[in-house]
């Protein structure tokens, strides 16, 4: 039985007016793994999570969670899933304990069992000391952890985490990573979305890269990197000579080079590894071009992303430019800034 996938999506299509948010998406997740949905803002990650957690009905396709069809029997499916959305959906004026207990009760637990599990989970996520304080005294990271605790209290077989670390400080981010790894050790299956390539690389057993509502690549992080070949050449040059560099890379490597919109550097898969690099260097020298920097390196998920989508994960640039203190979440559109 363990071979049976625990999350299945087949041909999921969802439109919002003229916009195709999900375009014939298939997904198959084995029990006990961390599955990452990687894609830029607006790629359709959240829409897919909303379909799988019964919040949104697609126009076409079918989906299963823990063997239950989410479209025909959503109420049964809800017993087996937990959701932690992009916002910490916790009540400011309740204590941490009250928040988690409430969700436990709404999962159908009796009062005693809800209390018992709440105490255990708060201990596990390191909020036991703050359990009886109202949530408005919590930091942003604590609120996200509490939100995660609430999604776990029903002991669901599958946890859906929508950008669990967006908008929180680096220390809290690592805390949440550890929590996620702890959950996996206990046999929970996790589907998480992220815009952070390092997060996907570090946590996810398998990844689907999603862009414009389509799954454009799927596999382990290593498989995705291998598809780029064993190595990439990265060249930093000034704007004036970039066209010639592109031309040289194209003719030597036989692949279309990509320009990183953030720092302007040019990368291309190196089919013959170091020999490709040697040829590129010779070609540039012949053309009289002296690059600011040139090197051969292992591909990263950034390269995978750039190669697959033709653009970098947009929000990554935003995230690294802004300090955690002034980073804004999407909730700001509602006039709500992060505490």
């Amino acid at each position: 039985m363990s071979e049976r996938p625990i999350v299945v999506a087949e041909g999921i299509t969802k439109r919002f007016g003229d916009i195709v948010a999900l375009d014939d998406v298939d997904l198959c997740i084995e029990p006990g793994m961390i599955y990452g949905l990687l894609g830029p803002n607006g790629a359709g990650k959240t829409t897919l999570i909303r379909v799988l957690t019964t919040l949104l009905r697609p126009e076409a396709g079918r989906a299963e969670v823990a063997g239950v069809d989410v479209l025909t029997d959503p109420q049964e499916a809800r017993r087996h899933l937990g959701l932690a959305g992009q916002f910490a959906a916790v009540d400011d004026y309740l204590t941490g304990r009250e928040n988690v207990e409430m969700v436990g009760r709404l999962y159908g637990l009796d009062a005693r069992e809800a209390k018992r599990r709440t105490a255990e989970i708060l201990e596990r996520i390191g909020l036991a000391d703050a359990a009886d304080r109202t949530v408005r005294t919590y930091s942003g990271g604590m609120q996200r952890r509490l939100d995660l605790a609430a999604s776990m209290v029903g002991e669901p077989q599958v946890l859906f985490l929508d950008e669990p670390t967006t908008g929180i400080d680096p220390k809290s981010r690592i805390d949440i990573w550890l929590l996620i790894q702890d959950l996996i050790a206990r046999g929970t299956t996790i589907l998480l979305t992220t815009q952070y390539l390092d997060e996907a690389d570090r946590l996810a057993d398998r990844l689907a890269v999603i862009d414009h509502g389509k799954v454009i690549s799927e596999g382990t992080a290593d498989e995705l990197k291998d598809r780029l070949g064993g190595a990439v050449i990265e060249v930093s040059v000034g704007d004036d000579v970039r066209p010639q560099v592109l031309e040289a890379l194209r003719s030597v490597c036989g692949e279309e080079p990509k320009i990183d919109p953030v720092n302007g550097s040019v990368t291309v898969a190196a089919p013959d590894g170091p020999r490709s690099l040697t040829r590129v260097v010779l070609a540039l020298d012949e053309a009289g071009i002296v690059p600011d920097d040139i090197g051969l390196r292992k591909p990263t998920l950034d390269d995978v992303f750039l190669a697959l989508t033709g653009h970098v994960a947009e929000e990554i640039t935003v995230a690294t430019e802004m300090s955690p203190g002034n980073r804004k979440r999407r909730g700001f559109a509602f006039g709500r800034s992060e505490r």
Binding site: R50, T53, E76, L83, G85, L106, F334
Partner: peptide, 13 residues
């Protein structure tokens, strides 16, 4: 706007 309704709608309540 806080996502609380989403949480409720995802629960078997």
């Amino acid at each position: 706007s806080k996502g609380v309704i989403d949480r409720f709608r995802s629960l078997p309540m």
